[in-house]
Design a protein around this nucleic acid. Sequence first.
DNA 1: ACAAAATAATGACCTTCGGTCAGTTGGTGA
DNA 2: TCACCAACTGACCGAAGGTCATTATTTTGT
Lengths: 209, 209
Amino acid sequence: MGVIERKEREKELRSESIIDAAERIFFSKGFEHATMNDVAEEAELSKGALYLYFHSKNELCMAILQRSLHILREIFELLLNNKNLTGIKKISKLSKLFIAFSKEHPKYYTSLLSYREHRENCPVTGKIIKNTIKENKNINKIISDIIKMGQADNTIKKDIDADKLSLALWGNFTGIMPSSILSEKATLNFNPEDIIKYHFELLINAIKT
Amino acid sequence: MGVIERKEREKELRSESIIDAAERIFFSKGFEHATMNDVAEEAELSKGALYLYFHSKNELCMAILQRSLHILREIFELLLNNKNLTGIKKISKLSKLFIAFSKEHPKYYTSLLSYREHRENCPVTGKIIKNTIKENKNINKIISDIIKMGQADNTIKKDIDADKLSLALWGNFTGIMPSSILSEKATLNFNPEDIIKYHFELLINAIKT
DNA sequence: ACAAAATAATGACCTTCGGTCAGTTGGTGA
DNA sequence: TCACCAACTGACCGAAGGTCATTATTTTGT
């Protein structure tokens, strides 16, 4: 009598396929201009059905955002577990991974930037929010662990505060890049990559032994 | 026959008073939940009249955002013109000013964070957008100038790229802070201030002579 | 095998809100 | 006094997020 289990699996699949559809719609039309009807049509469901799986348009967005964080976490985990690099080299590599992610998954990356916008309009309870927060935690933990590894292998100064630095690096990713993109055409002829690379270089000089 | 001039002044005043009203409404209800009718009522005008002064709700938001940037620019200008501090001390002071601003004008600060959100839904032409971009430029210019002054007075390394560093610092302001606020309750017991201070300390170590 | 119960899904409908525009008001200048 | 014009009004429109009574489908008990 695996009926319940099967139904649960199917429900999960439905849910994922709705997120798939939402991604296609949101990423092509933009969140503002995409409608729930669009998503419903793309998911081959009625609009009402969407609301059996997600409480609101914003929550659906958070589900996509969660995927972004998940992808990033996996990338960073690989880096963390890489045995061939010293701690400081890993931090250096981190900036390249940031940039690579934003290039390979520009839409996922952009979704990260609207965290606040959607988060504010979601109920605090709920699996999606909790998972998103968890992924966020995980990422900070990984970066922090990398720094600590650097301190263990003596490539990063012992007096560096790993947790604070990890938050700072993560903050840069969602701050420098977009802020550079913003002024990109308007002000200077630097691209965001240069800025983030440069910033990492400076920080690396400050923390290396 | 100063009628035309007077009318122009009055129009300008009206426009400002609409922004005043919008601030009160948006800041108290939040942008999403505030309606143009709310703003119209607060401004003691009809909804239609608002659209004689601003093309859209988003543009009205950009007008508020412009005020935020203006305030910040004035703060930074004071710092730039301070004759009693060396360049490197000014950079150090900059982080304190960032934090002070976000504390004294939390709503203005928050408005900065939704730049992208509103910008994307505004026509590229128009005085407001142009002014906003200009303020943005100005701020980056000021920070960059401060760094150059530090290089002139030999408190900052000559090989530092002032323009890149300026963008990095500015990006941190709109990246680290909110990202820290985000995870504030969820993950760690650091407050955003600590993170931004710490980050500045590291950078200052990397750039000072 | 069949009906009752439970679950999934539908789509017409509701409400709200950004934005419009034909019409009104009131100051201006001749 | 009156024609004119800019400022302003507010009823109205269309779009879109969200709801819910109804229908369809699957499961369960006998």
